[in-house]
Each structure stands twice: as structure tokens, then as C-alpha cells.
Amino acid sequence: MSTPLPPAQPPYPQQPYRTAPATPGRGPAVAAVIVGAVPILLGGLWPAVSISLYTSSNYTLAGVVNAAFALFTCLIAVVALVLGILAARRHVAGRLLGGIAIGLAAAQIVGTVLSFASSSIASALY
């Protein structure tokens, strides 16, 4: 009979298993981008709602609903701006997505402010 072979030895001595410290992921940055995209997506649907409001010949209601919608999307953009700033400042992994969220939110806020300013100026002139 043959003699059994000794168990194979690893070429290097075993090192103790070490885990890497837990680092937070890009969750807050992804949430900021999603929240920042919501006002833009709602803005794409708004013309259909706006047309139906103006065809009802109730212009006061249309103006009030339009202002409420603009304020709602501006508030969502402010939330996205805060989340984007927090995500960009926390970790390197969230800087790009945090910056994208900041850009989306800032564009929405500037657009809303300019829209209110232009309609206020137009109503004062005419």
C-alpha cells in the first residue's frame, strides 16, 4: 500500500483575517439626485395640467394652482440642495452625485425665482 501524502501547506503563513472599516456608501448622494430630479420630471408634466386649467376659463384658479405648484417644486429643490451639500461634504464617493444634485436643485430654484420675478414685473407694468 502506498503511504498517504501529508496535507498541503499554503506557500505563505496564514495572516489573521482583517475586515476593512465600514464606510458609508453613496446612499445620501443617490437620494439627493433622485429628489433633485423630481421637480424637473414634474415640470415636464405641468404643461398638460396648466393647459387644462386655462381652458376652463378660471384664470384666478389657474394662477393660484400655478403658484402653489411652483412653490412646491421649489421646496423639493431646496431639500435636494441640502441633501446634495451634505452628500458632497461627507465622503469622496458622494461628491459627483452630490454636485449633480446641487446643480439640479440650484437650476430649479433660480428658475422659480426668475419666473416669480418676471410675472411680478409683468403684472406691475400691465
Rank of each mutant, 00 (worst) to 15 (best):
P4A: 05
P4T: 06
P6A: 07
P7Y: 08
A8Q: 09
Y12H: 15
P13V: 03
Q15I: 05
P16A: 12
A20H: 06
A20V: 01
P21T: 07
T23R: 15
G25P: 06
G25F: 05
V33W: 02
G36E: 06
A37G: 07
P39A: 09
L41N: 08
L42K: 05
G44K: 04
W46H: 09
V49K: 11
L53E: 09
L53F: 09
Y54N: 09
L61C: 00
A62M: 01
V64E: 00
V65I: 02
F69M: 11
F69E: 03
F72T: 13
C74M: 14
V78M: 04
V79D: 03
L83Q: 15
G84N: 12
G84Q: 03
L86T: 10
A88R: 14
H91T: 14
H91N: 14
H91V: 02
V92D: 11
A93P: 02
R95A: 07
L96A: 08
G98I: 02
G98L: 00
G98H: 11
G98E: 10
I100A: 14
A101N: 04
I102C: 06
G103F: 14
L104I: 04
A106F: 08
A107G: 15
S115P: 01
A117S: 11
A117D: 05
A117E: 13
S118H: 11
S120F: 15
A122E: 12
A124L: 05
